[in-house]
């Protein structure tokens, strides 16, 4: 008989599956499955719905941006985009320096009050120019003045920070001397 082996295997097929994997295999599978973020798969209808929602959302956003009342920053950008960018960088720099200045608030409250008072005056001036900007007759001039104001704020902050540094290094010197004595 030619097919004896085949018949034998077919009859005893299940008895051949005697190999048992170690418990470690499932642990690894479980670990991997838990680690993998579950990717949410939507069926076709939901995908269409999601796409429509996205399109509507985008449309609404575009509509709002287009119909928005003019904003001061926008007008600055429209009048002179280069200046607008300069102003943006300057404002960022001012923020950083102001944060530095804030560190002395606790140690030297008097000095801080004085310094920030000077800054506030400049900033108030800047804010009022910003408000005037959209209706101003001589916009270019006003923008230049705004940039100048920001530059002044930076200069002032630099000076203030230098003063603070000097005070600190003097204090350190005294302390060092005190130790030496």
């Amino acid at each position: 008989m030619k097919n004896r082996l085949e018949k034998f295997v077919e009859e005893h097929r299940d008895e051949f599956d005697v190999y048992e994997p170690s418990a470690e295999v499932w642990r690894s599978i479980e670990k991997t499955m838990r680690k993998e973020p579950k990717v949410f798969k939507l069926n076709f209808n939901w995908r269409i719905a999601a796409a429509i929602a996205l399109i509507i959302g985008f449309g609404v956003t575009v509509f709002r941006v287009v119909n928005r009342p003019p904003q001061p920053e926008d007008s600055l950008a429209r009048i002179n985009p280069e200046y607008a960018q300069t102003a943006y960088h300057m404002a960022a720099l001012i923020d950083i320096k102001r944060d530095e200045l804030k560190r002395i608030q606790k140690e030297q409250p008097e000095l801080y009050k004085e310094f920030s008072g000077d800054l506030e005056r400049l900033d108030k001036n800047y804010q009022s120019m910003k408000v005037q900007l959209s209706g101003a007759a001589n916009q270019e001039k006003l923008v230049e003045a705004m940039i100048q104001n920001l530059q002044l704020q930076i200069d002032l902050l630099n000076q203030q920070l230098t003063i603070i540094q000097r005070i600190n290094s003097k204090n350190n010197q005294y302390e060092n001397k005190g130790i030496a004595l």
Binding site: D17, Y19, P21, I29
Partner: peptide, 11 residues
């Protein structure tokens, strides 16, 4: 499913 198929698949 793992419990049901692991042995035959491992074999």
């Amino acid at each position: 499913l793992y419990r049901l198929y692991s042995r035959s698949m491992f074999s």
